[in-house]
Design a binder for these strands. Structure first.
Lengths: 215, 215
DNA sequence: TATAAAGTTTAGTCATGGCTAAAAAAATTT
DNA sequence: AAATTTTTTTAGCCATGACTAAACTTTATA
């Protein structure tokens, strides 16, 4: 009843936000056709994992959310584990964890968590949900919402897009890095920040994927 | 074209020996019906992984053997990796590796092999096939074929059966252990061996699963 | 507000990999 | 050698999760 496909749908819905997820949006995210997404939404709905209002969108139920967070937990624990043991580069972690997450038993999940001392952040700074779906409450804020003329500390970088990840690394935008926000372009919402005495322009897209805390 | 089910069939055929594997034997090993096994044998045959003589049995082709050994390599590398990092007990290793082996990418396989310094034995003493299917030539012999009144060293214990594994451990039959073969029962082919000054009777079934070398 | 466009669902198809029941071949007994 | 048992295959069915094409809502535009 729980399958790889179902877990992928639940995780995708979690990523896309809390409510009224469009079929097309979900289908695009999973690279399937809208018809396939409708099909699966109906099945998940029958199993009480998803709420579906025809033509209006779908959202996770409490049970569905819990299962989605379980997948996310496995993913992030795996990233942390592979990083610590094999020293995989930050760019490789996501792809490998994506393959393994569905095959991780509860037992192995527990062993890994214990081995890592129950970490609350993965190597990209993302919070790791607890065994029952508890998620770390943090005061990380998205970079694009940050006030000008503030000093911030980088807390989360995205993990999926290789190109973005490499760009961030090449420009010194890494976890724990201090960064001063100089200005914001009112036309395209890009930012100019100062890192280690050099100025860097951060596109609007990227500034929505990086999270920071105020210093 | 390569799927979990197909990999399981190839691995099972490898385990069952080199040629003329019966449909029923294969089906029993995989806990599917004979009809399902016939079905899959035909598919693998179409893909050149298996030779099938109707009503006579099936066997792996060179390509099929190579793919089977690739699965075995992943399995045994995973066992070794999980043992070394998480310190999983010997009894847990098999089950966990069984789940993960199909999801291990070539990249991760390589990383793990390198991390472990290209091991040639897994924690149960089984040889780990190389990246191209090369298997360690060793002079391990099956315990049941061992001459009486010889001193032997335990080199391989089975990994699948929990009960057997626990019995072996509880009786001191572990890798590297010295063992003296005292006698053989001509009726049931069981053995009596001396380990650490105590005598142990080993059933015929188990004596076919343990491999040793002469001292 | 009527129409076009965008998004969603329905209907029907396909491959995969199970299953059962029945037919056919091979091996074993009598 | 004939009959029986065992093994294997064939035929047909089912669930899963993709797909296309067409129908149907909803939203946006003229």
């Amino acid at each position: 009843m729980t399958s790889i496909a179902r877990e992928d749908y639940l995780k995708a819905m979690w990523k896309l936000g809390s409510s009224n997820i469009g079929t097309l949006e979900l289908a695009n995210h999973l690279e399937v056709t809208p018809a396939s997404a409708t099909n699966m939404i109906l099945k998940l709905s029958e199993n009480g994992l998803v709420m579906h209002k025809p033509y209006k969108g779908a959202s996770l139920t409490d049970t569905g959310l819990k299962q989605a967070l379980s997948v996310v937990r496995r993913h992030r624990l795996l990233e942390t584990f592979l990083s610590k043991t094999l020293g995989l580069s930050n760019e490789d972690l996501h792809v490998e964890a994506e393959r393994l997450e569905h095959a991780l038993s509860k037992n192995l999940e527990n062993s890994i968590a214990e081995y890592l001392d129950n970490p609350v952040r993965d190597p990209h700074g993302h919070p790791i949900p607890g065994p029952n779906g508890e998620i770390l409450t943090n005061d990380d804020i998205v970079l694009s919402d940050c006030p000008i003329n503030s000093t911030t500390l980088i807390r989360q970088v995205p993990d999926e897009d290789l190109e973005i990840l490499l760009w961030l690394k090449n420009n010194g935008i890494i976890l724990g890095q201090k960064m001063y926000i100089k200005s914001k372009n009112n036309f395209d919402d890009s930012l100019v920040v100062e890192i280690n005495d050099s100025l860097i322009e951060i596109s609007s897209i990227i500034s929505k994927l990086v999270y920071v805390t105020r210093e």
